[in-house]
Amino acid sequence: MTQTLGITVDNISVTYTNSRLALYDASCYVKPGNITALVGPNGGGKSTLFKSIMGFLEPNQGKVNISGLPIHQAQKKQLVAYVPQADEVDWNFPVSVWDVVMMGRYGYMNLFRIPSAKDRRLVKESLTRVGMMDFKDRQIGELSGGQKKRAFLARALAQEAKIMLLDEPFTGVDVKTEKAIIDLLLQLRDSGHTILISTHDLASISTFCNRVILLNQTILASGKTEAVFTEENLAMTFGGLPIRSKKAEKINTIGFD
């Protein structure tokens, strides 16, 4: 069994209708068992790359392999979980936190999606792990930014996927929750998960990501954090914007409530 839980992105280009090229000739490899940060400016194509990896959109060219399989097959085997950016979710939808996390289990259920005892147990465990059990009956719009993120993180946990893609998990999240999410991601990595996370919070990256991919319309660099995450490379990626943040110093070790 040659199960390498990596992601291979091979020469992807994406053009949205009515707009310029969002991504061109993007190739990279997401190494198994690591936390990889996908770093780039707003509009740089991070979400577009995620959507290409997940098969949510059809690239004009190129292909993606997940764990050596075509996307759809990997998804059928529940190999990949995706935590969406906050603005992709309809927060007014009449579902509770519990309902949402249960959706992470649908792929394991029979055709009628009737939860088994195991499904319920895993939903409960996932909610507990992100500290959201107390909010399980809330409608999803009735949550703070950090709680919303944790609810969708719980759904990804419930899915028991070995590869996780998180799009901007720290946007609209307080420092404490950010720290707690980071701790959780580190635990997942240590248990063999492969994690790809997009962020523009540069300060925290070197604290938990061992690999970095720099993206601005195409892949500019990728590799180990020490090698790639340099002032020079960042200046190139962000087009010479000053990169200063004190946020990292504020992060202390606090868990979820």
Partner: peptide
Amino acid sequence: LLRRKDLLLFCFDPNHAKAIGL
């Protein structure tokens, strides 16, 4: 009646439906 959960998921989050291989 038979597909109500999938249809609801499809209305709520078609991307997740795809992500779990539906």
